[in-house]
C-alpha cells in the first residue's frame, strides 16, 4: 500500500507531484529564456562580424566556435562550474548553467546566422552599396531580411536542441524539472508517472517548435521554387 502522503493511483500521484514538477519546469523555462536571449545576441553579433570583412576578429570567433562545437556540452558546463573557481571565477549553479547554455548555443547560432548572411549573393550587397547605403542600412533593409528566410528553419531546429540541453543542468543540481523529477521519484518510487510528466513537459515545448521549423522549411522550399 502506498503511503498516502505520495497519493495513490495515477491521478492521485499526479495531483501530488504536479505542483512540484511545475515549479521545476518554470525554472527550466527561465534557464532557457535567459540563455536563448544571450545565445541569440552572441549569434547575431558574432554572426554579423564573421560574415563581414573584419578579418582580424574572425579568427578568435572561429576558435570559439571550434571549442564550443568540439566539446560535449556537459564538459563545457563542468569547466564553468567546477574548473573556473580555481581561477577565482565562481558562479552559482544557476548562473553557471545559464552561462554554459548561452555560450554553447551561441556558437551554433553564430554559424547559422553567418551561413544565412553569406548565402545572400554578393550582387545584392553590390546593388545596395551602389545606391550609397551604409553598412547598417544595407544589413537592415537588404541583407538580413533576405537572410532571415534561410536562417529561421535551422535556427528553430537549433533552438529545440538548445531547449533539450537544459536537462543536462541537472548534473550540477540546479532545480530544473529534471532534477526535481529525480528527487520526487526518489521519494515516491513512481518513475513511470514522474518521468512521464517530465517528458510531457519537454515535449509540450519541443513539439510545436519542431512543427514550426518544418513549416518554415517548407515555406522556404516553395519560395525557392517560385523565384
Amino acid at each position: 500500500m502506498e503511503p498516502s502522503a505520495y497519493g495513490s493511483g495515477f491521478w492521485g500521484v499526479s495531483a501530488k507531484i504536479l505542483p512540484i514538477l511545475l515549479r521545476g519546469f518554470a525554472n527550466t523555462l527561465s534557464y532557457y529564456a535567459w540563455s536563448l536571449l544571450i545565445g541569440l545576441m552572441i549569434g547575431a553579433v558574432l554572426g554579423l562580424i564573421s560574415s563581414s570583412r573584419l578579418r582580424v576578429v574572425r579568427y578568435p570567433i572561429i576558435v570559439y566556435i571550434y571549442i564550443m562545437r568540439g566539446l560535449p556540452f556537459l564538459i563545457i558546463l563542468f569547466v564553468i562550474y567546477h574548473v573556473l573557481p580555481y581561477f577565482g571565477v565562481t558562479f552559482s549553479a544557476t548562473y553557471a548553467g545559464i552561462l554554459a547554455l548561452s555560450i554553447h548555443s551561441g556558437a551554433y547560432y553564430t554559424e547559422i546566422i553567418r551561413g544565412g548572411i553569406e548565402s545572400i549573393h554578393t550582387s545584392q550587397r553590390e546593388a545596395a552599396i551602389a545606391l550609397g547605403l551604409s553598412y547598417f542600412h544595407r544589413m537592415l533593409y537588404v541583407i538580413v531580411p533576405q537572410a532571415m528566410r534561410l536562417i529561421l528553419p535551422p535556427l528553430a531546429g537549433q533552438m529545440v536542441l538548445h531547449f533539450k540541453d537544459t536537462a543536462v543542468l541537472s548534473l550540477i543540481a540546479v532545480p530544473d524539472v529534471t532534477t526535481v523529477g529525480r528527487q520526487v521519484m526518489q521519494a515516491n518510487r513512481q518513475p513511470f508517472i514522474v518521468f512521464g510528466w517530465v517528458a510531457a513537459f519537454y515535449a509540450a515545448i519541443c513539439y510545436p517548435m519542431l512543427k514550426l521549423a518544418l513549416l518554415l522549411e517548407n515555406r522556404l522550399k516553395h519560395s525557392q521554387v517560385r523565384s
Binding site: 553590390e126 551602389a130 547605403l133 523565384s227
Partner: peptide, 30 residues
C-alpha cells in the same frame, strides 16, 4: 556614389521588396 547610378546585367533588384520600395529605399535612406 549618390551621384553614380549603376545598372547590372542581372538587374539585382531587391527580391523581398515590391517595385515601389526598391525605388524609394535609396532616396529615403541615403
Amino acid at each position: 556614389r549618390k551621384e553614380i547610378g549603376i545598372v547590372f546585367q542581372s538587374f539585382n533588384l531587391f527580391p523581398h521588396m515590391n517595385v515601389l520600395n526598391n525605388l524609394i529605399l535609396g532616396p529615403t535612406k541615403v
